[in-house]
Nucleic acid binder design. Structure first.
Length: 206
DNA sequence: CGGGAGATGGGCT
DNA sequence: GCCCATCTCCCGA
């Protein structure tokens, strides 16, 4: 079942980040379908300086502030990579959840091909399945999530990108989730806003 | 396996 | 001009 508009509204950002663990992210692309279980997330709040939205509404952050929760926020980083977020909290807030890692499920061959094609190396390096989507940039390459997906409604039945519940509403308990600090930031680095499934081998790093 | 450097371009001051 | 919610390659152990 595709997650509904109400699901994204139900929790504040940090709780949504935990509730998204175990859900399936799906992309129906012209090349074929790819999907993966969300195993690692981070919450970003408009009240803390690590968030893009901390500076207020700009061309880039407009999606986060003006999108209803459940809208996709995709940004371009380090000149080469996209990162995928889910707008969260209530409409008008600048909170979002970064999706950091997936356990690949459908279209694994297609994901590998996209990753290999993206790499400049002449040598065909073998990409092991547990590293196919083990990072926010990697999963966007593997799933082919590009800036064209910025601002789309993940809860709309029309969208080609969405998140589904595959566990009949069952969610991970706090003791099954590791809560720690976020990766790759310098500001507000001490806040415990990164979440991953304990013992999971598909996360970006331990 | 771990560390360090380089790639590469948009956003913001 | 500097920063950046990253990744890959290549080196040494």
């Amino acid at each position: 079942m595709r997650l509904t508009k109400d699901f994204y509204l139900k929790y504040p950002s940090t709780q949504l980040a935990k509730s998204l663990l175990g859900k399936l992210l799906v992309h129906d692309s012209p090349d074929g379908r790819t999907s993966g279980i969300i195993v690692e997330t981070e919450s970003y709040l408009d009240s803390e300086p690590a968030a893009h939205s901390y500076v207020g509404i700009t061309d880039r952050t407009r999606t986060i502030y003006e999108g209803h929760p459940g809208t996709s926020y995709v940004y371009f980083i380090y000149g080469m990579y996209s990162c995928f977020n889910v707008v969260s909290n209530h409409e008008g807030s600048g909170d979002a959840v970064l999706i950091r890692a997936l356990e690949p499920i459908e279209g694994i061959k297609l994901m590998s091909e996209r990753r290999l094609k993206y790499s400049k190396s002449k040598k065909d390096r073998i990409i092991s399945i547990d590293r196919l989507c083990s990072g926010p940039g990697k999963l966007c390459v593997a799933m082919d999530i590009t800036k064209e997906y910025n601002g789309i409604k993940l809860y709309s039945s029309e969208s080609k990108l969405w998140i589904e519940d595959i566990k009949d509403g069952k969610e991970y308990l706090d003791e099954e989730i590791v809560t720690t600090t976020r990766v790759g930031i310098t500001k507000a680095a001490e806040l415990p806003l990164r979440f991953y499934i304990k013992g999971n081998k598909y996360i970006s790093k331990s």
